[in-house]
Write a protein that binds this DNA or RNA. Sequence first.
RNA 1: GACUCGGUAGCUCAGCAGGAUAGAGCAACGGCCUUCUAAGCCGUCGGUCGGGGGUUCGAAUCCCUUCCGAGUCGCCA
Length: 569
Amino acid sequence: MIFMIDKLKLQIREDLEKSLSAKYNQPINVVVEEPKTSGLGDISIPVFSIVKTVRKQLNEVVEDVINALEYSSAFNLIKAVTRVGGFINITLDRLGFSKAVIKENQSASFGQLDIGENKTIVIDYSSPNIAKPFSVGHLRSTIIGHAIGNILEKLGYNVVRINHLGDFGTQFGKIIYSYLNFGDKAKVDKNPIEELVKLYVEFHEIAKEKPEIEDKAREIFKELEQGNPEYQKLWSHFREVSLSEYMKVYEMLNVRFDSYDGEAFYNDKMQAVVEELTEKSLLVKDEGAMIVDLGEDMPPALIQKTDGSTLYITRDLAALFYRKKTYDFDEVLYVVGNEQKLHFEQLKSVVKKMGYDFYENIHHINFGLVLQDGKKMSTRKGKIVKLEDVLMEATNLSLEYINEKNPDLANKAVIAQKIGVSAIIFNDLKNYRTNDVEFNLEDMVNFVGQTGPYLQYTSVRISSVLEENSFNCENIDYHLFTSDHSFELIKTIAQYQEILIKAKSEYSPSVLAKYLLSLASYFNSFYAKEKIVVDDVLERNTKLCLISIIRNILDEGMNLLGMQVIRKM
RNA sequence: GACUCGGUAGCUCAGCAGGAUAGAGCAACGGCCUUCUAAGCCGUCGGUCGGGGGUUCGAAUCCCUUCCGAGUCGCCA
């Protein structure tokens, strides 16, 4: 059974390649695509490359391809074949195609994709640093990681979501020192992250005058590592209060994790890595530190500092092996910014050198930096934009819109927040993830055009029609789907599954986001042209069925992206 | 300096296993609410695809070169 347009294209391609290869007695590659300009049909086949391989006249090849098409198993869904120069344009049988799409959509198996069955993917995202504010960069990681995780689950993968908290390192020595010497317990309890950051900043100011406190901090950290109960208690307290603040953000974004094991969790698992590297003779002493030489292409990986303490990559290696052992993953994804590209290349390279094949399944899902005035945002420069403020701003603005457009709406505050938060999520996901983004509040809370609210609004429009009218998808007049604006919708619906697969293969939610925009756009055009609740029972039922399918896809798609679906706005 | 990523309409971006007149949204301008939510729809305006070479029937897409921006480059994470 062929229904999806991409499957149809694939089928035509396979059939043509088979019969043409036989005819010309050599392997033939056939390109099957969708015409970029409208009015030329639904599917097109440029034959130039075939002409080149077989060294025959263009006309002759065109003839051969058209003849071969008739023997394709997809031919029953083809209505017309025309030729424009070196292009063969295929027009689909709209009636037959619509029927296939709607039937497929109604079947129980719709959307149940199983390409990820029995496969496990570990995905590491969000990972904020304890005692530091939740940055806009971590917001990107959180949003992108969450959406990719959802898409993977939709495709049938077993997904393990890990929040690899930055809860370890010399900075804890500094914070503990500051807290003990000039901290205020009450203040910290009341406003943990803000106060801890203040203490951290204060530490650095004092360290300018009295550099010896740096040694104190290192000492405290060393004792913390070795299990000093007082320091451990403080560390664990700071971790807890920070995490509970992050949880508020996660709750607002509707994000969950399977594990919050951060860097500290791997503290006792690093020695084994160092030992294994030593056993495999990969560790070399260089300028007092222990490194793994990675050849000409890459700078070496620093595994152990001169003073014997370990580094980021050592911890990541320990975490990686732990995850492999614990989850036996097929792939592991790290949703971490562009600036750590080299780090992950080194990580893969070290794993490869250690002789493990699974280095190929380690993917750095990099994303662009959040820039301010064209430069990387820096905590040190104190230009911290508080995430809560951004979410608040978006919520307030959407409330203003509601008051203007629909002042009698019930639950305004709740809906305003759902719109505001979703606007920010969508704004991040609609563009390809590796693009850098300039921090711009106005863009983030834009509600007009290619935005989150546009999708929500489209779904709400459909809901308000469906709410008042019952329908069934058994009794359909497929002829109604043959108009241009209806058939665009049918073709777009038919692309949904392929879009999910593409979003997975590129690890980019933007593929889905762009698709939802185009579906919504086609619907809104349709909505402007056609009255849905008409007197004719069959026509009304047919249209209601169609728009309900559209709403299902919009809603599911929005959920996959991490947005909130609403019924009224 | 080396390496990586990017440069497409005034702005934000699609398109990039080479294919037919380079597409959206925003902004600007002009239409469309006595009919299912106008956060919408329709139209107009807007481009030497950073510059220069090359590969070929054909280049935004591939190669080289050059300019511009960002990021990274052993003891932070």
